[in-house]
C-alpha cells in the first residue's frame, strides 16, 4: 500500500506551486484545515485562487484570510465577498475594496454543487438558485417543468486542504458532526487531497467500511495534527 502519511504539515504542502487553485473547507469555524493553511502560509506560495465559503473572518484564527492578508491569494471564489454586517471589516474586505484581490461570488448551495459536479465528472447543471437576480445575468437560462433555471459549471481545484476527525492508512476519512460541511466535496474534487487528522491515523481495516465518509482513493496525503497544533 502506498504510504500516504507525512510527518509534518510543512512536508505535506512543500510542493504546492504558485498560481494553483486551493480548496479551503470549513463553516462557522468548524472543519477548517488551520494547520495546513498555516503551513502553506509559511511556505509562501502566491498568486493562488482560493475556494472557500468565506474569505476569512474577523477573528484571530488561522484561516484562508491569513493567506489573503499575506498577499498569497490573487482571487477568492466564495459565498461571501462582503460581511453581512458593515462593521466586520476583514483583510479581504480592505484588499477587495482597494482592487488588490479579485473575487467571484457564488451562492453557497451552487458552490457546493459545483464542487460535487467537478468530483462527479459532470459537465454542468441547471439550478433555479439566483434566477431573477443580478447573479444570473449573462448565464444560460433554460426552463424545465415550467420553472426557469441557470446553467452552472463544475469547480475543479488543484489542491484540497482537508480537516478530518479520523483516518486510516488507506486514506479513508471520517468527519464528526458539522465538521463535515465542505470537506468531503473538496476532498473528492481536488486533484491532490491533503488531510490534517484530529486522531491517530489507524491501520487500514480498523475503520468500519460502512461508516466512511470519503473513500481513501481520493486522499493523497495524511498528517496527524500534533499536540501543539491548532485545534480550534
Amino acid at each position: 500500500m502506498k504510504n500516504k502519511i507525512y510527518k509534518t504539515m510543512d512536508d505535506a504542502v512543500a510542493d504546492i506551486p504558485d498560481g494553483v487553485t486551493i480548496f479551503s473547507p470549513g463553516f462557522g469555524g468548524v472543519g477548517v484545515p488551520r494547520n495546513l493553511l498555516a503551513a502553506l502560509n509559511r511556505q509562501g506560495a502566491k498568486d493562488l485562487t482560493g475556494v472557500s465559503n468565506n474569505a476569512g473572518t474577523v477573528d484571530e484564527h488561522v484561516d484562508i484570510g491569513t493567506l489573503v492578508e499575506a498577499g498569497q491569494m490573487k482571487k477568492m471564489i466564495c459565498a461571501f465577498t462582503a460581511a453581512t454586517h458593515p462593521s466586520q471589516v476583514t483583510p479581504f474586505t480592505k484588499m477587495y475594496n482597494d482592487g488588490e484581490i479579485d473575487a467571484e461570488l457564488v451562492p453557497q448551495g451552487t458552490l457546493a454543487e459545483r464542487l460535487r459536479c467537478a468530483a462527479a465528472g459532470i459537465g454542468g447543471f441547471y439550478t433555479p438558485t439566483s434566477v431573477g437576480t443580478e447573479l444570473a445575468e449573462g448565464k444560460e437560462h433554460r426552463e424545465f417543468n415550467g420553472r426557469m433555471h441557470v446553467l452552472e459549471l463544475p469547480l475543479p481545484g488543484d489542491y484540497g486542504l482537508i480537516r478530518a476527525w479520523k483516518a486510516d492508512t488507506a486514506g479513508n476519512l471520517v468527519f464528526r458532526l458539522t465538521q463535515r460541511n465542505f470537506n468531503p466535496l473538496m476532498a473528492m474534487a481536488a486533484t491532490v487531497t491533503i488531510v490534517e487528522v484530529e486522531n491517530d491515523i489507524v491501520e487500514a481495516g480498523e475503520l468500519d467500511p460502512d461508516l466512511i465518509h470519503v473513500a481513501g482513493i481520493y486522499v493523497d496525503r495524511l498528517v496527524r495534527i500534533p499536540e501543539d497544533g491548532i485545534w480550534v
Binding site: A79, Y96, P107
Partner: peptide, 11 residues
Amino acid sequence: RKGGGIGGAMD
C-alpha cells in the same frame, strides 16, 4: 459597498 454576502440565502 463592493461585493455581497449571499451565503445560502439564494438557494
